[in-house]
Amino acid sequence: MDAQEVAAIVGETRRRAGRPVVVGVSGFGGSGKSTVARWLESEVEGAVRMRGDDFLDPSRSHRRSSDWDGVERERLARDVLVPFRERRDSTFRRYDWALRALGEPEPVPRGDVMIVDLIGLFHPATAPALDLRIWCDVDLATATTRGRARDAEIGRDHEQLWQEIWVPNERDFVERFDPRSMADVRFTGSVPGVPKTGA
């Protein structure tokens, strides 16, 4: 399935729902989630993006966990995804990576489609708030290679984290929740004009 077909499915999901919808984009670290989400935001009319990294607690995401404990799924669903779908006014707080604390409250954006990209997103805590699930279908070894290369390119030394924390966390999460099987769409293509590098 190519990127344009995925965009068409997103649009059809919105038309059928008759209300704002939430599209979850997930996959392993380095699989291209953010790249796909950014492209969909630009391609789908009325789309807004919620960056998954704004709902990561680094103190927890940098330690071993069988369910990606550092992903604050409950807060994401409660404060952002459900109010967006219901067209309710709500505020949320992004994680400020510079301050290493939650930032100031800000309003949940309005739109027809919210695209959220995040590791560990296809989980029972968020499943009821997702109208369409897109899995970036890249195997763990390939995604990890891409993620490490991306980190090296921007000067981040995360080699120990990849080896000792993130890859084992991914394996455990797959074993517990099988997120690939929860996907409505398994995306194996590339985004137009963007090489397959990972995000």
Rank of each mutant, 00 (worst) to 15 (best):
Q163W: 03
H62V: 00
D69N: 05
E159S: 14
W162P: 03
L81S: 03
E159M: 02
W68S: 06
V48A: 07
W68Y: 15
R94M: 07
L140W: 13
A127V: 10
P105V: 04
S31K: 05
D57Q: 08
W39M: 06
T142I: 09
V191P: 05
P83R: 03
V22F: 09
A98D: 12
V82M: 06
A143W: 12
S34N: 09
G111L: 12
D67E: 14
I115M: 02
V185G: 00
R146C: 10
W39T: 07
R63G: 02
G189F: 11
E106A: 14
F187S: 05
V138L: 14
R78G: 05
Y95F: 15
A47C: 11
T188K: 04
R51S: 13
P109K: 10
T142Q: 10
D131H: 08
V167L: 11
V185C: 06
A77Q: 02
Q4F: 13
V10T: 01
L102N: 01
S90E: 02
D151Q: 02
P83W: 07
T144K: 03
D184W: 12
I9N: 00
R63S: 09
T126E: 04
F55I: 06
D137L: 08
H158G: 00
P124Y: 10
V174R: 11
R49K: 15
H123E: 03
I154R: 15
V22Y: 10
S34W: 09
I9R: 15
E12V: 12
V71T: 01
P107W: 05
D89L: 11
M50W: 06
R176V: 12
R180V: 14
E153Q: 14
V21C: 04
T144D: 09
E159F: 02
V23N: 04
E170C: 11
E104W: 01
T126A: 13
P105Y: 09
G120C: 03
S181Y: 08
I154F: 13
A37W: 13
V36W: 13
P107F: 06
D172N: 07
E45M: 05
A7T: 07
R64W: 13
T126W: 07
K33C: 06
V82L: 09
T35K: 06
A127M: 12
G30P: 06
W68V: 02
E104K: 05
R87W: 05
R94P: 01
